[in-house]
Design a protein around this nucleic acid. Structure first.
Lengths: 228, 228
DNA sequence: GATCGGCGTGAAGAAGGCGTGAAGACCGCG
DNA sequence: CGCGGTCTTCACGCCTTCTTCACGCCGATC
């Protein structure tokens, strides 16, 4: 999650950066409204934290200009407690308004709330289609010609490893480590067994594979692209 | 625009009703959390104003229960200024948090902001049907062939977790954390016991399940779609 | 054309997870 | 203090899943 912080006070910028990065947000900070508007356009952040008291442009004007082209959640940070400022900022298009000094915990919670709301139109992992085969990574569901295909944990882990690297040649060792764990790397009989089960359940033929391609002596490869 | 106000203090209800109706909102007021949850299901309001200090149910619990079936914007009104309360409410699914006493102008602006970004998506059905089984998420009521099915709190929590994620494979750890709390994750015997009770009470068969599907070694899955 | 290594196939034993039944612990309530 | 409901825990068959082995086939190599 990328956050753009717009504030002219360096110590506030630093404090926000520290706290946000500690919670695994990617943080970019700028000091002027002009940079803020351009930053939203260039960086396409997931969240905008905006100080109202900027030296160059009025805060509500920044909100208006951002809203002209972006739906990014905006949380306003301001020392001004006056109702008119809050109303103006919110009506200009801000999503939330927090007065300084603020508790970092609360700001983070409000940021989570704002990001959560913005989620729905975020494209969740699409359903992959290969002919009549459908693989829903989010639901962990595989169907073939409409019928659910039951896969064991190991089978699914192997399928996931293959499907998430389409077209790429995956070596025996790489696959073994990914599916079975770091301690493995030479047990190619495991691979043969489970590749076989996968091909059987997915309706693939080893002699003329349409899904899992054997690369003799090296590894396996999933077909290039989701087709049909 | 329809607004549901949940507050146990009559004078607050009256004040909110007056101000909101002056701004052309349609207002319904109730005094308890239970009525609030049911009201969201029955009235499908565009906005929920919720007091945290209700006599019957804890405020965050009301939020959680509403969020089980509705995406309606929720603005919390509360006398509690503690950060933990704010964080808990926001993380439970609230959209905004306003401390009493509040300025009506600000609340109206926050309401406008909440309504503006609300997704105009289809109202989620509060009553789910699976054959002769009916699950009313708002009233926490489960009926089977017209007969009420009594579920213990834990049983209902597990059912809710499953039903609100149809078709998705929910891992043992995910379910344990959701139903029993953060400290859990390995107690699969709990799951086995309660899944068994649920299947028994809902009339499902473990060997050929129509509702709760076992994914050996991974977790459980509720059937894909409400049918019948 | 013979040898050899790697792969696909089939199958079987071992290990672990699941469903089941039940019993004890805990808790709120009268 | 007793009681009913609920939660937690245990032991026991059964079945899925994992692991392992043997064999035949094919292409590569010499």
């Amino acid at each position: 999650m990328k956050v753009l912080v717009v504030d002219d006070e360096p110590q506030i910028r630093r404090a926000l950066r520290t706290s946000l990065e500690a919670h695994d947000y990617e943080v970019v900070t700028v000091g002027t409204g002009e940079e803020g508007v351009v930053g939203v356009a260039d960086l396409a952040p997931d969240l905008l934290l905006l100080d109202l008291g900027l030296p160059d442009v009025d805060g509500t004007e920044v909100i208006r200009r951002v809203r002209a082209f972006s739906e990014v959640p905006i949380i306003v940070l301001s020392v001004r407690e006056a109702q008119t400022d809050k109303v103006a900022a919110l009506d200009a298009g801000a999503d939330d308004y927090v007065t300084k000094p603020f508790a970092m915990e609360e700001l983070l919670a409000r940021a989570r709330a704002a990001l959560r709301r913005a989620q729905p139109d975020e494209p969740t992992q699409p359903i992959l289609r290969f002919g009549s085969l459908e693989i829903d990574l989010a639901r962990r569901l595989v169907t073939r010609e409409g019928e659910a295909v039951h896969l064991t944990p190991t089978e699914y882990a192997l399928l996931e490893a293959l499907v998430t690297n389409p077209g790429k040649l995956l070596t025996h060792q790489w696959l073994l480590r990914r599916v079975w764990g770091q301690g493995y790397g030479t047990e190619t009989t495991y691979l043969r067994t489970y590749v076989r089960m996968l091909r059987k359940k997915l309706g693939d033929d080893a002699s003329s594979p349409a899904l899992i391609i054997t690369e003799p002596g090296v590894g396996y490869r999933w077909v290039a692209e989701p087709a049909g």
